[in-house]
Amino acid sequence: MESTILAEMPITKTNKKLNVIQNSIEHIDSPVLKIDDLSVSYGGDKYSIRNVSAGIARNKITAIMGPSGCGKSTLLRAVNRMHELYPNTHNKGAVYLGDENIYKLNPIQLRRKIGMVFQRPNPFPTMSIYDNVIAGFNLNGIKLKRPEKDEIVERSLREVGLWDEVKDALHNRGTFLSGGQQQRLCIARALAYTPEIILLDEPTSALDPIATAKIEDLLVKLKKDFTIVLVTHNMSQAARISDYSMFMYLGELVEYGKTKQMFTMPKDNRTEEYLTGKIG
């Protein structure tokens, strides 16, 4: 019951504060994904994110920033329901993909529409590069003819700029690649399904600067075909590649707007303090 009290807190205080919060959240026209008053808890009444509402713009890169523990990964995982891997999770509110509430969908179908890339590159160690790219089909028992498979593998690897590097070693294990190559392989694996949205959870935090730059270039290139949502605790990365930025603090979406504007003229004090290194 504490949670409802938390939700009502801004209203019982002053209306002025409520206005500030609403103004600092940018409205997105015809969003591909609409997060509607979402709160997520990993058990009990303690919510890791509270009352988050935001639209995600189609074919743009949206970055979620914030200090560790602010709930940015939870928000990302709530979008394809990966947070449900932990027992006792529950949530309030909704997330709409098109007209459908994703919490009414089957998570298996949902995850085929919203792909994900993780912090550490995680290619399947038992599979070759080729099988890793096509894993989404093979593991789901979708039978494809050889030429179809070949085409998907080549297209996906070309999209991530890995084709020329690995085309002669397609049947070697994916784990023999360098960290950056592995991460691009994981992106190719997520792309092979042609999902609508790709979620990336700090995709470059385990990589060196050169590999990071390649991934960033890749993401900018990919946004013409996909909508990208990216969690990062690297502010300059968000500034370099994202179109929209969210700033989260203590489970709350503090500010959401165009990246350029947020970095030059933040509306909320806390955003400014974070960007200038006073909190976080």
Partner: peptide, 21 residues
């Protein structure tokens, strides 16, 4: 656990994640 996450994020049902990955 990252391997299991990778498979689940591709929409693979749990039993296939366990048996095939």
């Amino acid at each position: 656990i990252s391997l299991k996450e990778a498979a689940l994020s591709l929409g693979v049902p749990y039993h296939r994640v366990m048996l095939k990955v």
